[in-house]
Design a protein around this nucleic acid. Sequence first.
DNA 1: TTGGTTAGTGCATTTTTTACACTAATTACC
DNA 2: GGTAATTAGTGTAAAAAATGCACTAACCAA
Lengths: 245, 245
Amino acid sequence: MATNFDNYFKSAFTVDNVIFGFDEGDLKVLLIKRGEEPHIGEWALPGYFVKTEEDLDAAAKRVLSELTGLTNVYLEQVHAFGSVNRHAFGRVITVSYFSLIKIDNYIIQPSSIALQAQWHTVNDLQHLAFDHDTILESCLQRLKWLVKTRPVGFELLPPKFTLTELQHLYEAILRSPLDKRNFRKKILSMNLLVDCDETQEGVAHRPAKLYKFDRKRYNKLVEQGFNFELKETPIKKKTSAELSN
Amino acid sequence: MATNFDNYFKSAFTVDNVIFGFDEGDLKVLLIKRGEEPHIGEWALPGYFVKTEEDLDAAAKRVLSELTGLTNVYLEQVHAFGSVNRHAFGRVITVSYFSLIKIDNYIIQPSSIALQAQWHTVNDLQHLAFDHDTILESCLQRLKWLVKTRPVGFELLPPKFTLTELQHLYEAILRSPLDKRNFRKKILSMNLLVDCDETQEGVAHRPAKLYKFDRKRYNKLVEQGFNFELKETPIKKKTSAELSN
DNA sequence: TTGGTTAGTGCATTTTTTACACTAATTACC
DNA sequence: GGTAATTAGTGTAAAAAATGCACTAACCAA
């Protein structure tokens, strides 16, 4: 084994952020149009180099803020991508982060190195720069898992929302339809929603009730180890007995 | 933002492997006694620098092999740890990997930079070098999650095992007791075990039947999207209604 | 006032989970 | 050879959760 450690200190890290939003019934992801080589002019996840004197998690926040103007976003690490030839400039390992935000709450202001920052519909994407297709896909998997484990849907919706909007969000993430009555029963039984005593306005049909998410209660339940699991209801699953042959 | 990218190429990566085993009813982890600075003489996870010309996943395998003699071990990435002052020699980000192995199948041969490589009972550990306590803890969480999702128990047991051994393994990972009848019912209903038509020998009580894991069937079920979820049975969970006040 | 549209609601059946205690097979020891 | 010690192995009833399904309610527009 090498005794000269200096040889190892010749690599770089980047962070790449996968920021999900939800609008008009579609799951969206925030992308930038790169204004720098390599991959100049291509759409990419908002990411950049980590400085040697900053923590990884802090770098993810800073980079997101510098490229898109978004601040105070909760970011969660997903995976490190470390193939040798990911990057034209040398050995670069990237660590991906993901987040869920309410699109309306944030104004996006691309910086100099990002020509544009824009929401894109996930189902309708072109090829992205670097290996960002792979990175995005792994975050989509994470989101799919997360939505079955925690009531993350609320993070993506405006403060007041209808049950139908919430259901559509779940359907977009899980990519499968849910039964209306069963969905409502399960969500309401968690006691996480507060009835706002308001209804939708300006719709050409019966207006729906508006609800908001009770974060206090959510925190309390988390503390008590409550299991938020929400199973899919749509496709009937086969039992192991039926699969035996 | 910097235009001189060279400034970013001054960091190093390491990989740290958390190898779990199971023996005598206890969950074990493989540690090395470090033979190099920093932290010379301390117990640590088997990890080392990633070469600039090798893939991250490949590095994890190589390092494990060089430090402990273990080869052909399946490794799964867990998390990247990137605080600034983790390492005395400079900026080092480590990516942790974990694996489950059958202790009997592998002969451990420490290399020159590892003074020793040894199995340690997880519940009975001293402080580890670097931030390896944190890294180990995150892998324990991952294992706890994994065991509820996939029948990973089989990875840790010898080819032929009894249902009681399997149950004890689950209890060690979940850190809570399980009901014998319910555990057996659920495990057997997955149809993943094959009765070996043999019984234990040399025990001073009724000998238990030996089973083996049917990997073919497992692969088939995975392919069909079968849900292996195994819930804990022990502590009665409160419903959301009971938690309402 | 009628048609179009989405909101909102209940119940019966099936499946899964849970709680629980005795008999069976073997060895060790007297 | 008998008995004590030890772990293996088994079933059922009750409770909880999941599932499948179809009609009425409220609003707007034409």
